[in-house]
């Protein structure tokens, strides 16, 4: 159970380095984001969308790009056959912490790209409270990363890995997505910052609860 900082940061650095070397996930995700946003743009074709619909689209793109990006967290280790080595070298908590850190970084970059592309392409999409908006996107990304890390570990042990991931993730992420959409609406259309406080409380406690539970449960998932 012991959480050691050193192996966790080592694993994090290894993941970052191998990602920067191959750029496999980054390129694939970037293409995914570009494709999904262009599908949205094609279907809209110059019409002005209601802000509610734009927010819905934004969260759909965020959810599905996270689904395609996060699923490989542990599957890659299984495929390369490095799971056993990791099990020998570090405690489960450290592994989880390292992977969580990497996923947090990945999803924050991903969400930033998505939102910037959205803002650039949808000219009519005006945000009344940018500070709150970015905070919600950040917290939403953290929430998605924290919940999907342990689910990625679960599916790495199952047979149908790719399709199983969104199926398992969606019910778990639903409270986060609902609160996130509601808070984003407040940030885009609302007039006061305070209206989003319940949603922000929900987002923060979601992240805390999910990460704590994941730390407690990761042992059972990780050890064969």
């Amino acid at each position: 159970m012991a959480l050691a900082v050193k192996p966790a940061s080592a694993l994090f650095q290894k993941d970052v380095r191998s990602e920067l070397r191959t750029r496999y996930t980054l390129n694939a995700l970037l293409m995914f984001v570009v494709i999904s946003i262009s599908v949205v743009l094609f279907s809209v074709a110059g019409e002005t969308l209601q802000p509610e619909i734009t927010i819905g689209m934004l969260w759909i793109v965020m959810f599905f790009s996270a689904m395609s990006g996060m699923s490989r967290t542990f599957v890659a280790e299984e495929e390369k056959g490095t799971t056993m080595t990791l099990q020998l070298l570090a405690s489960p908590s450290s592994i989880y912490a390292g992977k969580l850190l990497f996923n947090l970084l990945l999803i924050v970059c991903l969400n930033a790209v998505i939102v910037v592309l959205f803002l650039l392409t949808m000219e009519k999409f005006a945000i009344s409270q940018p500070g709150l908006f970015w905070l919600v996107i950040l917290l939403g990304g953290f929430g998605i990363a924290s919940a999907t890390t342990i689910i990625a570990a679960i599916i790495a042990k199952a047979r149908t890995k790719g399709t199983l991931f969104p199926v398992l993730s969606f019910p778990i992420l639903l409270p986060l997505i609902m609160a996130g959409i509601s808070a984003t609406k407040t940030a885009v259309m609302g007039t006061t910052w305070e209206a989003a406080i319940p949603d922000l409380q929900l987002l923060v406690s979601y992240i805390v609860v999910v990460i704590t539970t994941s730390f407690l449960l990761f042992d059972y998932v990780w050890k064969d």
Binding site: A147, I154, P171
Partner: peptide, 9 residues
């Protein structure tokens, strides 16, 4: 593990 995770969230 999944059912516990689903329950807490």
């Amino acid at each position: 593990v999944y059912s516990i995770l689903a329950f807490v969230t």
